[in-house]
């Protein structure tokens, strides 16, 4: 059984994946509360056995402290809902890329005030939609973001870098 919102990356052994997916959708990036872990693209695999649920995740940035919080949060919500032990596995390869952020996730980022990764290089101010922007710093508040400023509305904003 394959589950479409994981873009076919999930191998399901057995069990109620939809229910697990629903529960997991409540877990968000601790730094970006509008982005679920599924939309961020860090959940790579879910396996269900008679006694355990094994969730395989991939780190965004190697040193990102949010990863540890995400692991704890996954354990917490699944543990509360299912009477099984929860195991988290970390998989490094293939390396996470911002291409795995879903369209829904990108939209949520923009509405939240963070410009989502732009492969074309076109960066738009999430406050006023102006394209008159300038780079302030290659890193913003976290490793995954850069800091920009809109020269029209003069507001600074974060840009989620292509990675």
């Amino acid at each position: 059984m394959k589950c479409s919102f994981y873009s076919g990356l999930i191998q399901i052994v057995s069990g109620d994946i939809d229910h697990i997916g629903e529960v997991l959708s409540k877990v968000t990036d601790p730094e970006i509360p509008v982005l679920s872990l599924q939309d961020l693209g860090v959940i790579r695999n879910i396996e269900i056995t008679t006694t355990k649920i094994i969730v395989t995740i991939t780190p965004t940035y190697t040193g990102c402290p949010a990863m540890e919080v995400m692991e704890q949060d996954i354990k917490q919500v699944l543990g509360d809902e299912f009477n099984k032990s929860i195991e988290i596995k970390t998989q490094l390869s293939p390396a996470w890329t911002t291409d795995w952020i879903t369209a829904k996730g990108k939209k949520a980022l923009f509405e939240y005030g963070i410009m989502p990764p732009s492969k074309s290089g076109k960066i738009v101010c999430p406050q006023c939609q102006s394209m008159q922007v300038e780079l302030i710093s290659q890193f913003g508040s976290t490793a995954c973001k850069a800091l920009y400023r809109c020269t029209d509305c003069l507001e600074p904003f974060d840009y989620f870098k292509c990675h």
Partner: peptide, 20 residues
Amino acid sequence: LEEDLALTNTALDIIGQAQM
């Protein structure tokens, strides 16, 4: 301030690599 954040984010990546 921005450079302070940028370089320490670089440090964070590198410490992440050390951990792996």
